[in-house]
Write a protein that binds this DNA or RNA. Structure first.
Length: 432
RNA sequence: GCCGGGGUGUGGUAGAGGCAUCCCUUGGGACUGUGGAUCCCAAGACCUGGGUUCGAAUCCCAGCCCCGGCCCCA
């Protein structure tokens, strides 16, 4: 019986895996250079961890189950909550800011489609313990540098917003928190008419609705000045001051952004700055968001002190669909050791070949025949895996204490000692 | 959860009621110390289950899976 993969999951073949490792290494490298340290949380958690903070949306999509002890568990649908849970449980006393990053798989029961899977990978980071725009700017700048390390900066568009502004406007007009959350969700969906409709139902003044719509539609650098000029927001507004400072610091980082106050990010726990990054080259179809993040307060929800944090998560698989490594990085430099057995297959040749292969493996990826193939079949194999060199080990070579090194690209070959062989191959691989 | 379009060896395909085609791939051989050519041999497929029919890869129904879209998200 043939067993198929579970729906929405993928097998990663060697070539794909190689590409993903290259990406992963680059992303890690940047995060480490910025002083973030890697952490890992469990693949599954108690269900409450996720149900506590997220709305019905996430709930429907969760892989939830009961273990043999009757505990309610869930495969993690995202990583922010587990990371903050870990912080509250284990890292509360760590120096602030606490800076961590992660690269792990997440699970959501959704209909698979382009760039959307049921098992997918998030690469993300959190800076915990600072409510300053400096910390927010750092997080955004970090995503920007990660993108540029992958060479996909040009195809990405960064939108920065702030949920505080809109919340302040509504609060100032005495709109209740529940209603505010509802409005935020409508805004996030981009349902302009429904926002207007909902405001009318609430009995909001037309003026307020106009201001709100005006805010949502603001884009570009001059927007904040207009907000001040039109006195939509109190001039001593904390959110406004914070956002202005954030944008200024982003300029210091040379980060290119679009101000977009229409970003609301459905989840209620975002408290301030929010941002999203989209792929604009059209490679991702309908799922063009590659990164999301913002400032939030979750620690208190999990029993810790109220702690401001800012973080982001990249959709790694979506990045992988955009990312193209240089062909040079994908090429493997390999050597095949070819024992040449005489008719009566004496083991000395094999023994010597294994020794030589071991020596070569100190430096290169080296293969040796394990199928007892003929000489020509071994060479044929070397060719089909695109090896660069073959090293022949036979009676004649053994007599002289040498090997025959054959360059498989040029066909040139020469007898030489093992040490010289190593040097030759090394020199050749270094050129690449 | 909803809506389209699809499923033939590893991959790519032809076949539109009766012998399943070709290419690539993989293993072996011709070739016993020099690869990519050629030739030969071998392996390997009609998504699953029902129905119609003398007979189904082909027609019908359901399911599963894949591709894309809606919703939501990364």
């Amino acid at each position: 019986m043939r067993i198929e993969r579970a729906r929405g999951t993928r097998d990663f073949l060697p070539a794909e895996m190689r590409k993903r490792r290259i990406m992963e290494e680059r992303m890690r490298d940047i995060a480490e250079k910025w002083g973030y340290e890697e952490i890992r949380t469990p693949t599954f958690e108690r269900s409450e961890l996720f149900t506590l903070k997220s709305g019905e949306g996430i709930l429907k999509e969760m892989y939830e189950f009961e273990d043999k002890g009757g505990r309610h568990l869930a495969l993690r649908p995202e990583l922010t909550a587990p990371v903050i849970r870990m912080y509250v449980n284990e890292l509360k006393m760590a120096p602030k800011p606490t800076k961590v990053y992660y690269f792990d798989n997440c699970f959501r029961y959704e209909e698979p489609q382009r760039a959307r899977y049921r098992e997918f990978w998030h690469f993300g980071a959190e800076i915990i313990g600072s409510n300053r725009p400096e910390a927010q700017a750092e997080i955004i700048a970090l995503t920007f540098h990660i993108l540029s390390s992958l060479g996909i900066k040009a195809e990405a568009e960064l939108h920065v917003g702030h949920v505080g502004l809109i919340r302040e406007v509504l609060r100032a007009a005495n709109v209740g928190e529940d209603e505010i959350n509802k409005v935020m969700r409508l805004i996030d969906k981009g349902e302009r008419e429904e926002v207007v409709e909902f405001m009318r139902e609430m009995g909001a003044k037309e003026e307020l609705t106009d201001d709100l719509i005006y805010l949502i539609d603001l884009k570009g650098k001059e927007a904040l000045k207009e907000v001040r000029d039109r006195k939509i927001i109190a001039s001593d507004s904390d959110a406004l001051k914070e956002l202005e400072m954030l944008l200024e610091i982003l300029d210091y980082y040379d980060v290119v952004y679009t101000l977009n106050l229409g970003i609301a990010r459905g989840l209620d726990y975002y408290t301030g700055m929010v941002f999203e990054i989209y792929e604009v080259g059209g490679k991702l179809g309908a799922q063009n968001q590659i990164c999301g993040g913002g400032s939030y307060r979750l620690a208190a929800l999990f029993g810790g002190d109220d702690t401001p944090s800012t973080g982001f998560a990249f959709g790694f698989d979506r990045l992988a669909e955009i990312f193209t490594p240089e062909t040079k990085e994908l090429r493997r430099s390999e050597v095949v050791v070819v024992p040449i057995k005489e008719k009566n297959a004496d083991q000395d040749v094999i023994k010597e070949a294994i020794k030589i292969a071991s020596k070569l493996r100190e430096f290169f990826t080296t293969h040796i025949d394990v199928m007892s193939r003929s000489l020509s079949a071994q060479l044929s194999y070397a060719n089909s895996i695109h090896a660069s060199f073959a090293v022949f080990v036979g009676k004649n070579e053994m007599k002289e204490g040498k090997v025959t090194l054959r360059n498989l690209d040029t066909g040139e070959q020469e007898k030489m000692g093992v040490d010289e062989c190593v040097e030759r191959v090394k020199a050749c691989f270094e050129d690449e």
